Simulated scan of single mutants.
Amino acid sequence: MSLSQLSAAGVSVWLDDLSRERIESGNLQELIDTREVVGITTNPTIFAQALRNGAAYETQVRELAAAGTGAVSERDVDEAVFAITTRDVAAAAEVFAPLYESTQGKDGRVSIEVDPRLAHDTEGTVAAAKRLWETIGKPNVMIKIPATEAGLPAITEVIAAGISVNVTLVFSLQRYRAVVEAYLAGLERAQEAGIDLSAIRSVASIFVSRVDTEVDKRLEALGTEQALQLRGKAGIANSVLAYQIYQELFSSARWDVLQLAGAHPQRPLWASTGVKNPDYPDTMYVTGLVAPNTVNTMPEATLEAFADHGTVEGDVVSGRGDEADAVLDALAAQGIDYAEVAEVLEREGLEKFDASWAELLQTVRGQLEQAR
């Protein structure tokens, strides 16, 4: 009941987890049928865990190993990872195809990330995104591009090519504004090229719990009563202000021109919504971020927790900008450098994805060598 209320309030429920076992066992379809799940996201960490723990990949790994001879090269490993991950995403896209059709492309989406080693390479990111899009060949796929400085022009370029994009690793409000601007610029270029704007969809993944984790650590180091009272407030406040930017930019004269041409707004997606501090309610980043035309991508534990005891109190985001500003002002008064926090989180996010990708490559290399 809680999840259906969440959907009725305008929040699309996406699962933040994908594996071949989940697809082939029917579990993914079961979550669609019983848990209001209308989309799914992946990242290097999720794929690394799936490959390390899943026996469902053994047959494909043997086939890939048999296609080569001699020592396993770096290119062999890269191509094997590409083949394995794109196959999973294509299969998941087929499972979600009916939802994609019934929502006219709004949901039923499956996201796959470009190689995280390209995070600071604009041209490499564009080429990788286009290759993923063409290889998977499913209209309900979204290509994930990180919101780095190099990622911003890549987002514009990829959107301009008519490819749907999930912008990931968004932390600061300044960067989020730049992400929306990159999307709008891409739509304008697509329109000039005669591409159907109605076929392009995008979300901007604004990370939530990681903001609290970093800010709380700094508040606890201060240790004063005033500082400790601010714990657990930064992540939602940041998201509330991001939603305010969304409302502003998608009600502008510039947007009106694109909307008349068939364009869809880039929805805010609340990412990193699993609670990392056990002292906090396990559904706080779902209950506290209910707003129309948003996405909440949840790990399975959060999904199940919300299904069990989540509450929906209507739109709790719109109109709360002053309250959220007050939280950020209070943090600044405690000496918390907001810009530095965002920089640290972006750097750490990229480092985590790089480490997971390296783990994924190492796992596949070991499996290829064993099969060969």
Score class of each variant (00 low, 15 high):
Ile336Lys: 02
Glu94Phe: 03
Ala9Val: 01
Leu15Ile: 09
Val341Thr: 09
Val180Met: 11
Ala92Tyr: 01
Ala97Tyr: 11
Val286Leu: 06
Ser12Ala: 15
Gly108Ile: 06
Arg175Asn: 06
Gly319Ile: 14
Val141Trp: 02
Arg372Pro: 01
Glu58Thr: 14
Ile163Ser: 07
Arg189Trp: 01
Arg20Lys: 12
Gln29Ala: 12
Lys276His: 06
Ala90Met: 08
Gln244Leu: 02
Val208Phe: 03
Phe207His: 11
Phe207Pro: 05
Gly366His: 12
Arg177Phe: 00
Ile159Tyr: 08
Val38Phe: 10
Ala150Leu: 02
Arg52Leu: 13
Phe306Pro: 06
Ala199Phe: 04
Asn296Met: 05
Asp325Leu: 12
Thr273Glu: 01
Thr148Tyr: 13
Asp115Glu: 11
Ser209Asp: 13
Gln104Asn: 14
Val158Ala: 03
Leu303Tyr: 00
Arg87Asp: 14
Thr156Glu: 13
Ser172Ile: 02
Gly124Gln: 02
Gln104His: 13
Arg35Asp: 12
Ala83Val: 01
Arg109Ile: 06
Ala253Ser: 08
Ser318Glu: 15
Gly349Leu: 07
Glu123Asp: 15
Val364Ala: 06
Ile155Met: 01
Thr168Glu: 07
Asp107Arg: 06
Ala154Ile: 00
Ala221Trp: 07
Leu230Pro: 00
Thr297Gln: 08
Leu303Glu: 09
Ile40Leu: 12
Ala119Trp: 02
Val61Ala: 07
Phe306Lys: 10
Glu30Gln: 11
Ser239Thr: 13
Leu260His: 15
